[in-house]
Write a protein that binds this DNA or RNA. Structure first.
Length: 483
RNA sequence: GGCUCCAUGGUCAAGCGGUUAAGACAUCGCCCUUUCACGGCGGUAACACGGGUUCAAAUCCCGUUGGAGUCACCA
C-alpha cells in the first residue's frame, strides 16, 4: 500500500475558523496515524480576497496547535510549488483546461455579466444561476474570432444533462447526483486563475494526495470533482467529509458567534491544547470513554472510521470545562506564566502573586476568570453587613461583631503572619470560646474580603494581604457592624 | 424551490439485530469543607413519527416529519 498523503488546503482569507481547524486536525491525524505525510497547500486563487497577513495566521495557527506539515510552501517535498498562485504562473491549470477542451469535456464561454444576470432566477428567496450551455454551441470560427478579438472568457466544464454521477465517501458511503443538477462550473476564471474547484482536483492529483479530507459543505459539489477525474481519466482519492460544526442554533458556525475562530478562543483565554482536544471530539469519538487527549495520543488513537455523520454543536460550556481540566493539570510554572499577566491587571499592591495564583488554579476555567475572583485583594469592596449572617455557619451581626472585636487585638499582637501562624491564633480562640470553626472564620473571612465567595479561606487571604491590611479591614468591619 | 445529507437526553456521544440504552458537559441533590471551588456520591433527562422485515429493531427497509448543507468568475 502506498504511503498516505493528506493535504490541508486553506485559502488565506482571515482567522482560522474552528471548522477549518478541525478539518486540519483530522487531515493531520489521518496522515500521522498511518505514518503518512501531511501537506500544506495555499489556495489563493481568489485575488480579491487574498491578503498577506492571512498567510501568517495559517502558519502561526498550525504551529501553535502542533499540526506540523511535512511539505508546504516553506518546506519543499518535491511536489511544489505549494501556493496555487505560483503554480498558476507556469500555465499549469490552463494546460489542463485546454486538454479538457480538446476532449470535449470543457469549452470556452464568452458570456458577459449581463447575460449571466438574465439567467438568474429567484427560488425560495435565493438567487440561482443555472448556465444554459449557450457558448457550448459556438462554432469553431466564432470561438477563434472571439479569442483573436481579445474578448474575455472563462472555461467551463461540459457536464451532460443526462445520467448520474456517483462518488464514494468513506464516511457517508455512495452519494449519487443527477448530472442535470450539476452546473457547467467554471474551471478558469476570466482573470486566468483557476477556480478552487478546478485547482483542487489538479493539485490533489499532481501532489499524489491519497485522502481528501474536507468539510461537509463540499458534499454536494463533490460529484463535480468526480466528473473532472473521470474526464481526465484519473483515479480518485479517498474522500472523507467531516460533519459540520454548528452554533447553538444548529447553523453553520459563522463569524458572528464570537468564538468561531481559533484566535478568538485564544484571546478569550483558552489553551491551545484544550481547543485542539475539544475540537477533535466534535464529530469523532475514541473506542473507549476517554476525553482528554494530547495531540500525540490523538495520533495514536484516531481512526477516521469513527467519524460521525451528523453535525455537532460547538458547546463553549464544555470547552470551558475541558480548559479548566487542562489548567488544573498544568505544572505550576507554566500555569503561573499564563496567570501572572492577568493577575497584574488587577493587583498593583506588593502581594505574593504566586500565592494568589495558586489559590485560583482549581477555581477557573479560563484565565480571565481570575480577575473577578481576586479583585478584593487589591481593594476591599463595599459590602452589605447582611453577609455576616450565615445560617449554616450560625453567624449573625452580633456574634460576628464580637468575634471581630475579640480577634482584633490578637491579630495586632501576632507577629507570624504565615498561614500556620494565623491558623494557630484562630484555633486557640475557637478552642477557648468553644465555638465552631465557622463562627469565627466566617466573619473573619467576610471582613477581610468583603465578598460572599472567595478563593481560599480566612487564613490564606490574611496571609496574603498581611498584617496592616488585615487590621484595617477588620476595623472597617467592626465599624460597619456597629453602625 | 431543486439536489444532497442527517436524525439516541439541553449539548457531545457509545451502540452496528437480543443491553436494566454507556460515558462526558450542563442541571439538581447530598457529602467533604471556614465560603466558593476542587474532590466524592447520587438523581432528573434520549432512541422524532408511522409502516414493514424478523422469534426479536435504537440498530435493517420504506414513507412522513423535522433539521442542515448546497445551488458564484468564494473557497
Amino acid at each position: 500500500m502506498s504511503k498516505v498523503r493528506t493535504r490541508f488546503a486553506p485559502s488565506p482569507t482571515g482567522r482560522m475558523h474552528v471548522g477549518n481547524l478541525r478539518t486540519a486536525l483530522y487531515t493531520y491525524l489521518i496522515a500521522k496515524h498511518e505514518g503518512g505525510d501531511f501537506v500544506l497547500r495555499i489556495e489563493d486563487t481568489d485575488q480579491e480576497r487574498f491578503f498577506d497577513e492571512a498567510l501568517e495566521i495559517i502558519y502561526r495557527t498550525l504551529e501553535k496547535t502542533g499540526l506540523k506539515h511535512d511539505e508546504g510552501p516553506d518546506k519543499d517535498g518535491g511536489y511544489g510549488p505549494y501556493i496555487q498562485s505560483e503554480r498558476c504562473k507556469s500555465g499549469l491549470y490552463m494546460k489542463y483546461a485546454k486538454e479538457l477542451i480538446e476532449k470535449g469535456e470543457a469549452y470556452y464561454c464568452f458570456c458577459d455579466k449581463e447575460r449571466l444576470e438574465s439567467l438568474k432566477q429567484n427560488i425560495g428567496g435565493k438567487e440561482i444561476i443555472a448556465y444554459d450551455k449557450h457558448c457550448l454551441h459556438l462554432s469553431k470560427e466564432e470561438i477563434e474570432a472571439n479569442l483573436a478579438a481579445g474578448k474575455p472568457y472563462v472555461i467551463r466544464a461540459n457536464v451532460p444533462n443526462e445520467g448520474v454521477t456517483t462518488f464514494h465517501d468513506e464516511i457517508y458511503g455512495d452519494i449519487s447526483q443527477p448530472n442535470e443538477e450539476l452546473d457547467d462550473m467554471i474551471l478558469i476564471k476570466s482573470d486566468g486563475y483557476p477556480t478552487y474547484n478546478f485547482a483542487n482536483v489538479i493539485d490533489d492529483h499532481l501532489m499524489g494526495i491519497t485522502h481528501v479530507v474536507r468539510g461537509n459543505e463540499y458534499l454536494s459539489s463533490a460529484p463535480k470533482y468526480t466528473r473532472l477525474y473521470q474526464a481526465f481519466g484519473w483515479e480518485e482519492p479517498k474522500y472523507i467529509h467531516c460533519p459540520l460544526i454548528t452554533n447553538e442554533e444548529h447553523q453553520k458556525l459563522s463569524k458572528r458567534s464570537g468564538h468561531s475562530s481559533y484566535e478568538d478562543l485564544i484571546e478569550q483565554g483558552f489553551l491551545s491544547e484544550a481547543v485542539v482536544n475539544y475540537v477533535a471530539l466534535l464529530g469523532w469519538s475514541p473506542t473507549d470513554n476517554r476525553e482528554i487527549f494530547s495531540l500525540e495520543e490523538l495520533v495514536e488513537n484516531f481512526d477516521y472510521h469513527h467519524i460521525s455523520k451528523s453535525p455537532a454543536v460547538f458547546d463553549i460550556v464544555k470547552l470551558k470545562w475541558m480548559n479548566g481540566e487542562y489548567i488544573k493539570a498544568m505544572d505550576d510554572e507554566a500555569y503561573y506564566e499564563y496567570a501572572l499577566p492577568v493577575i497584574k491587571e488587577v493587583i498593583t499592591k506588593d502581594y505574593d502573586l504566586k500565592k494568589i495564583a495558586d489559590l485560583v488554579k482549581t477555581r477557573i476555567e479560563i484565565f480571565p476568570d481570575i480577575k473577578e475572583k481576586i479583585d478584593f485583594f487589591e481593594e476591599l469592596p463595599e459590602y452589605d453587613i447582611a453577609m455576616y449572617t450565615h445560617k449554616k455557619m450560625k453567624t449573625n451581626s452580633e456574634n460576628s461583631l464580637a468575634v471581630l472585636k475579640d480577634m482584633l487585638p490578637r491579630l495586632e499582637q501576632l507577629e507570624d503572619y504565615s498561614h500556620d501562624g494565623i491558623e494557630a491564633v484562630c484555633k486557640a480562640y475557637i478552642a477557648e470560646k468553644e465555638i465552631k470553626n465557622g463562627v469565627c472564620l466566617w466573619p473573619l473571612r467576610t471582613a477581610v474580603s468583603g465578598k460572599q465567595m472567595t478563593p481560599g479561606g480566612a487564613y490564606e487571604i490574611i496571609e496574603i494581604i498581611g498584617k496592616d491590611e488585615t487590621i484595617a479591614r477588620i476595623k472597617k468591619g467592626i465599624e460597619l457592624l456597629e453602625a
